[in-house]
Simulated scan of single mutants.
Amino acid sequence: MLSEPSTATVRATLPVVGAAIGDIADLFYRKLFDAHPELLRDLFNRGNQASGAQRQALAGSIAAFATQLVEHPDARPDVMLGRIAHKHASLGVTAAQYDVVHTHLFAAIAEVLGDAVTPEVAAAWDEVYWLMANALIAIEDRLYAQQGVAAGDVWRAWEVTARIEETADVATFQLRPADGAPAPAFRPGQYVSVQVELADGARQIRQYSLSSAPDSPVRSITVKQVHGGGSPDGEVSAHLHAHTRAGDRLRVSAPYGDLVLDGVDAPLLLASAGIGCTPMLSMLDHLAATGHSAPVTVVHGDRSPADHALRIDHERLTGKLPDAAAHFWYEDPEPGHPVDRTGLVDLSGLVVPTGTHAYLCGPLPFMRAVRAQLLAKGVPAADIHYEVFGPDLWFAQD
């Protein structure tokens, strides 16, 4: 909880800081990478830096956390903090790095806001930062302990045992630990980070959902090649598609992610778009294996049936459940595809049972649209869960 004097100061300065937080975040990253270029090379996603998405996500999360502290002092945004902490754990972030961030973030605040940063203002926002940082450090420590690894020591060498071409730009890579040890357990819906060394020596990291069944001895990731037009966006997926074959090795993290099924014996709705179907495949496999009997509504949107990666598995696993139905929307459907399933996903014609828990994965506009439709159908916000790959822009200010 924020102290009383700091609460008053943060409340009074939040409009000014909020208006400038984008400029602060931009300057912070410039200062951080000038002092530590290895962080941009080997930790941060260069594509997200180039697009400004990471700046937006940082600005949005700080503003959302500070607003929560002053408007709801007895509550903490645990969903947001948990999502960030899982991502940090999958990257191997350590507590010492929060000191580095603090140094350059507060230098940026002082430079952007100038004389407005009095000692009282600096102290209040310092308190905000460390409340957020220490909460994340505590969650990350628990996540590392759950995996039985030292803080930050999440990486292992994995061997690619097979490569399966799913569509023209999607491939599945089947993996097993290179040391012959058992693969770490994971919960359906979780992801791993994959780090590859690129032509310029950078070791870039991206997250990919585990699309295999949790009880399978082999782990699978399904990767869509992102065509970035020569920019850093998509450089890891392009590298994997161009260079990774059976017998190769990849550096893979322990599994993390908070979009997971927690033994929910209730109606479920699993909604995805594009490559966002991958965690849903693992969830469906788990539901079939555990005998889930409540209704399951499977929803997916894609450009066309040919672009729908793992379509056969999507249908097959849905068919294994006693009370489940799959509904696929395509912008460019095959002849004979239902007219009411053409275009973008539209839940208006679907019955969503009372008590439904929804899980969403796909582009942010898709998830926002589906969430709004579910809220309109009476699904409580607390029962709608989502996964964002890349910076979480849900709270970012446009």
Rank of each mutant, 00 (worst) to 15 (best):
P177E: 02
I137C: 00
A178Q: 09
P217C: 10
D141L: 12
Q190R: 06
V194S: 08
Q195P: 11
G152K: 01
G201L: 12
P119Y: 10
G148Y: 01
D141G: 15
I205M: 00
D169S: 12
A145H: 03
L175K: 05
R187W: 08
D200C: 02
Q146T: 12
D153N: 15
Q174A: 15
W155E: 00
Q146L: 15
A199R: 12
A171Y: 04
D200F: 04
D141R: 14
V170C: 05
V121R: 03
G189F: 00
V196I: 07
V192I: 03
R203V: 01
S209I: 05
A150R: 13
N134K: 12
Y129G: 04
Q146P: 11
S212Q: 02
R203Q: 10
R163H: 10
V194T: 07
S220V: 03
A162V: 11
D141V: 07
D126P: 04
I164A: 13
A181I: 07
P214T: 03
P119H: 05
S212W: 06
E197A: 13
R187Y: 11
Q195H: 09
T172I: 08
A185C: 12
A150K: 14
R176H: 14
E159F: 11
R176T: 14
A123F: 11
R176W: 14
E159R: 15
E165H: 15
A213G: 09
R163W: 05
I139M: 11
G148T: 07
A162P: 06
A151Q: 15
A168K: 15
D215Q: 06
A124C: 00
Q207V: 10
I205T: 05
Q204R: 08
Q207F: 02
N134G: 09
R142P: 11
D169A: 14
L210S: 01
D179M: 12
P182C: 09
A162Y: 12
A202W: 02
E166Q: 12
E197P: 09
F186M: 06
A213S: 10
A183I: 10
A202M: 05
E165L: 14
G152I: 07
E120D: 15
Q190C: 03
D215H: 14
W130I: 05
S193Y: 01
S220D: 10
E140C: 00
S212N: 06
T118F: 06
I137D: 02
E165K: 15
W158Q: 06
N134L: 09
G189E: 00
Q190S: 13
R163A: 08
E165F: 08
T172C: 07
A145R: 15
A124N: 00
V194P: 05
S212G: 06
L143E: 07
S209K: 02
R176A: 15
Y208V: 01
W155G: 01
D169V: 14
G152L: 05
W158Y: 13
A171P: 08
D215C: 04
V218P: 04
A183L: 04
V128Q: 11
G201A: 14
Y129Q: 06
L131Y: 02
A185W: 09
A151N: 14
A150F: 10
A162K: 14
T161K: 10
E120Y: 04
R176L: 12
S211F: 02
A157D: 15
V192Y: 01
D179F: 09
A122D: 06
D179C: 09
V149F: 08
L198F: 11
Y144R: 05
V121C: 04
W130H: 12
I205R: 02
D153Y: 09
T172S: 15
A133Q: 04
D215G: 13
D200G: 01
P182T: 11
T118I: 10
